[in-house]
Each structure stands twice: as C-alpha cells, then as structure tokens.
Simulated assay, not measured.
Amino acid sequence: MTQTLSSTSTKSPVTVLGLGPMGRALAAAFVEAGHPTTVWNRTSGKAAELEKRGAAVAATAAEAAAASPLVIVCVLDNDALRAVTAPAAEALRGRTLLNLTSNAADHARETAAWAAEHGIDHLDGTIMTPTITIGGPDAVYLYSGPEELYERHRATLAALGGTGTYLGADPGLAGAYDASLLGFFWTAVTGYVHALALARAEGVELTDLAPFAQNLGSLMASVTHVFAEDVEKGRYEGDESNIRSVRAGLAHVLHAAEGKGLDNTVLRAAKALTDRAVADGHGEAAISRLVETVAEPAS
C-alpha cells in the first residue's frame, strides 16, 4: 500500500531527493526498514517501483523536503546538488539535509555555509561501496558535520545497513576521504584495465590472468597501512624496495605496452613521477616517498 506524505508510522520519516541507481537503493532500504519514505526526482518514471513498494512520490523537491525531518540528497554532482536544493531552501528550513552526493571537501563546506544561511541543519556523507551493498552488512558510510546531528539521526541511518563512521565536525572531512579513496580506487581500476588490454594483446586468456591480479590486490592491501605510517613519520627507508626499482619496472611495462600500440597515458604519468623523484635525488628512498613528489607538482 502506498504511503501518504502524512504517514503515521512510528519510525522517523525520511525523504530521498534524487533517484539515480544509488538514490533508489537508499530509498528502497528505508522503505524495507519500515520508515515512511518520500521520494522525488527531477525526471519522472524512476519512482514507479519505489511507489509500488510503499514510498510516497512528491511532485516537487520542496514538497518532498517538507515531508520529513531528515532529507537525503544523492545526485550526480555538486551542480545538480545546488539545482535541487536551492528551490527547496525554505522547505528545508529547520530540517536536516544530509548530502550523500559524491563531493569535494570545499564543496561540502560551501554547502554547509549555504545551509546555515537558510536555517538548515547540514550533514555531509559519502558512500564507499556500490549500490548492491546498500541495506546489507557490507555497506560503508562516512559522515561529517555536527556530532549532535549525526547522533540525532543515527538510528534512522542504521536502516541503510553496514557500518557508519562519524569522522568529525568539519563538514569537509567526508568529502576529503571520498576524493582521496576514490582517486586511489579509480587509478587502480585504470591500471587493471590497462593490464587486461596488454594481456589480451599478448594472447593471454584474461580469466587465467585474473587470479594473479587478485594476488596483487591482496599485496596492495597489505602495504596500505605501512605506507600511511611511513608518510606520517616521514620515514622513507628504501632497503627492501626503492623508487629506482619501481622506475625500472615501469620502463619494462611501457616497453611491452608501446610495442602493442596501447594508450599508455596513465602508465607514462606514473613513470614520469618516478623520473622526477630520481632526478631530485630520491631514487634510493622507499616507494612511499613518492607522496612528497606528488605534493610538489612539477613546475
């Protein structure tokens, strides 16, 4: 049965603005958990399945915002976020706006300032797992902003499943984590895509290659904490592996890839980073020392 905007459920009402794949997954999790859920999307048609499952569909973003004390917005980017929330500013007044749009730290802080000017409580957040995890035990969420707001809505957010981590009062923290971790993830994905292209060009069965790629992924997981500690302590001892050896390895891969006519843009950028570190006298330093090279862009 379809909920009305004035549902009398004992669970706190929630509004979701934006019904892309992630927005639909969020709304579905709230519906499944028994929260009166109101949804809105700029283009019609995406709410049909949610409406069948019990969500209320609002005609405007303002109407949707007025239906709940917690309003979650999950749209494509910061421009879309502004386009959705600005017309609903008055309806959002006195409510909590939780932005789960993937966002940069400076944009999150700008949104928090805008919200404060309009009497809107603001939390920022990021979702670090894909849509299929939403509502289940494997979902991962990060939140930043006033701790009191996070605690106020914590029980409602539990409907999303998985683990939620509060990072701190700075509204930009979730965005900082988001940009840093997604930069790592998508660069790694790009590396794997290149590996598949090179292996295919050499006649390798890609499903035979995949288990060895998984082994390398496990190796990467084992060094993430070590690298972070090295950088925090400024300790870059390259006794076991150093930047010069990485540079040689990248040169070897580039030679193989260039012989197959592949697009090696990302690989060349990685090689250029090691070239600069070696030229600056850091060839014998640990690989983690490349953080400092990244932090000092080439002139």
Rank of each mutant, 00 (worst) to 15 (best):
T187R: 12
R24G: 15
P297C: 05
H225I: 11
Y141R: 00
A158D: 04
A277N: 11
W114H: 01
K260S: 10
F227Y: 15
V204G: 08
D239C: 06
R268D: 06
V189D: 09
E229W: 07
S102I: 12
A174C: 12
M128V: 05
A159D: 00
V291E: 07
P36N: 11
P21H: 10
L250N: 08
I134L: 04
A105V: 07
G145S: 00
A169H: 06
V231Y: 06
A33D: 08
L198W: 08
K233V: 04
L100H: 02
E237I: 07
D124V: 06
F227Q: 15
G168E: 11
S288N: 13
V291S: 11
A228H: 13
S245M: 14
V278D: 05
I120C: 01
M220K: 08
G162R: 02
V223A: 09
N242S: 13
D77F: 13
E147A: 04
L81W: 10
H35M: 03
A221L: 14
R152V: 00
M1G: 13
S241Y: 13
A188L: 15
R95M: 09
L273N: 00
T85G: 03
H122T: 02
K46E: 04
A116Y: 13
H35W: 05
V291M: 10
N41E: 10
W40P: 04
S68Q: 02
A29K: 03
G191M: 13
K52E: 11
T131I: 03
F227T: 11
D239F: 06
S102W: 10
G18D: 06
N264I: 13
L81E: 08
Y166G: 15
C74L: 14
L219C: 14
G34R: 05
L97G: 01
K233S: 06
A115M: 08
T165F: 09
D121Y: 02
L92C: 03
T43P: 11
G259W: 10
R247S: 15
V204D: 11
Y143H: 01
D124M: 15
T15D: 04
M1T: 11
A159C: 06
H118P: 02
G283T: 01
G125K: 04
M22R: 14
E51R: 04
D138K: 13
W40N: 09
A248D: 09
A213G: 12
T111R: 04
D239A: 14
T101P: 03
G234C: 08
E117V: 00
D230I: 00
E63V: 05
E229D: 15
H252S: 13
A213P: 08
L254C: 07
R109P: 01
T60R: 02
L198Y: 09
G162S: 02
F185Y: 15
I287W: 11
T96M: 03
E110Q: 12
L92E: 02
S7L: 08
N78H: 14
I134D: 02
V75S: 00
D77I: 11
N99F: 05
A27N: 06
E49Y: 08
E151D: 11
T8N: 14
D138Q: 10
E110D: 15
Y177T: 05
D239G: 10
P211A: 09
I120L: 01
D170Q: 00
A25G: 02
Y150V: 01
A201V: 09
T126L: 05
E51L: 00
H118C: 01
T38I: 01
L76M: 13
S7K: 05
A279D: 12
T131L: 03
T265Y: 08
A115T: 07
